[in-house]
Amino acid sequence: MEQQDLSYTVTTAKDFEAAVKAVEEAAATQGMKVQHVHDVQVTLRSNGYASDPLKIIEICNARYAHEVLAKDILISLMMPCKINVYVRDGKTYISALRPTLLAQFFPHAELKEVANQVDAKIRAIVDAAR
């Protein structure tokens, strides 16, 4: 599996916090709700580990979630969708796990169409937040 199949990643000229806010705002315009934001840097620092900024933004759309969970409850293992904002080597990145992976991990559930729809929304969020 190639990297582009796994994730959709862009660099942004925005600083870290502005990129996080842009992802949250773009998610709302795509009909996705932010479920939780994990501040990995804070978590690691609180345990004595140095880390560059990293936030994992979990987003979901109830209609899509209901549709895929009706096909196989184990799809919940890969939910909700995640978009990460992180800093590496002084650059800020926005990266999303590709929802199209669901169809590959759960071929019996016939998820290609819905996975492609959600993937388009996720890529639109990343592009808008760029």
Results as ranks from 00 to 15, higher is better:
Glu2Ala: 12
Gln3Leu: 15
Gln4Val: 14
Leu6Thr: 07
Leu6His: 02
Ser7His: 14
Thr9Cys: 05
Val10Ala: 08
Val10Cys: 06
Thr11Cys: 05
Thr12Arg: 03
Thr12Ala: 06
Ala13Glu: 10
Ala13Asn: 10
Lys14Asp: 11
Lys14His: 14
Ala19Pro: 10
Val20Lys: 02
Val20Ala: 02
Lys21His: 15
Lys21Pro: 07
Ala22Met: 04
Ala22Tyr: 12
Ala22Arg: 15
Val23Ser: 02
Glu24Gln: 13
Glu25Asn: 10
Glu25Ala: 13
Glu25Gly: 08
Glu25Trp: 01
Ala26Arg: 00
Ala27Lys: 00
Thr29Pro: 14
Thr29Met: 13
Gly31Gln: 09
Val34Cys: 09
Val34Lys: 11
Gln35Tyr: 14
His36Asp: 12
His36Asn: 10
His36Trp: 13
Val37Ile: 09
Asp39Ala: 12
Asp39Thr: 05
Asp39Leu: 13
Val40Ile: 07
Gln41Asn: 09
Thr43Trp: 10
Thr43Glu: 14
Asn47Met: 10
Asn47Arg: 15
Asn47Ser: 10
Asn47Lys: 15
Gly48Arg: 00
Gly48Ile: 02
Gly48His: 02
Tyr49Pro: 01
Ala50Val: 04
Ala50Cys: 06
Ser51Glu: 11
Ser51Lys: 13
Asp52Met: 11
Asp52Pro: 09
Pro53Cys: 01
Lys55Glu: 02
Ile56Gln: 12
Ile57Asp: 13
Ile57His: 13
Ile57Tyr: 12
Ile57Ala: 06
Glu58Lys: 06
Glu58Met: 13
Ile59Leu: 09
Ile59Gly: 15
Asn61Cys: 02
Asn61Gln: 04
Tyr64Pro: 10
Ala65Gly: 13
Ala65Asn: 07
Glu67Pro: 08
Val68Arg: 07
Val68Lys: 08
Leu69Phe: 02
Ala70Gly: 09
Asp72Gln: 06
Asp72Ser: 02
Leu74Glu: 14
Ser76Asn: 09
Ser76Gln: 13
Leu77Phe: 08
Leu77Met: 10
Met78Ile: 04
Met79Trp: 10
Pro80Glu: 07
Pro80Val: 12
Lys82Thr: 09
Asn84Arg: 15
Asn84Trp: 15
Val85Glu: 01
Tyr86His: 09
Tyr86Ala: 10
Val87Thr: 14
Val87Leu: 10
Arg88Lys: 15
Gly90Met: 08
Lys91Thr: 14
Lys91Pro: 12
Lys91Trp: 12
Thr92Cys: 06
Thr92Met: 06
Thr92Asn: 05
Ser95Asn: 13
Ala96Gly: 06
Ala96Pro: 04
Ala96Leu: 03
Leu97Glu: 14
Leu97Ile: 07
Leu97Asn: 14
Leu97Met: 13
Arg98Tyr: 00
Pro99Ile: 00
Pro99Ala: 03
Pro99Gln: 00
Thr100Leu: 05
Thr100Cys: 08
Leu101His: 01
Leu101Ile: 04
Ala103Val: 00
Phe105Glu: 00
Phe106Gly: 04
His108Ala: 14
His108Cys: 11
His108Gln: 15
His108Leu: 10
Ala109Asn: 02
Glu110Trp: 08
Leu111Ser: 04
Leu111Val: 02
Glu113Trp: 05
Glu113Ala: 14
Glu113Leu: 06
Glu113Phe: 11
Ala115His: 00
Asn116Thr: 09
Gln117Ile: 00
Gln117Glu: 09
Val118Ser: 08
Val118Lys: 05
Asp119His: 03
Lys121Thr: 03
Ile122Pro: 01
Ile122Trp: 01
Arg123Thr: 07
Ile125Gly: 01
Ile125Thr: 03
Ile125Glu: 02
Ile125Ala: 00
Val126Met: 04
Asp127Lys: 08
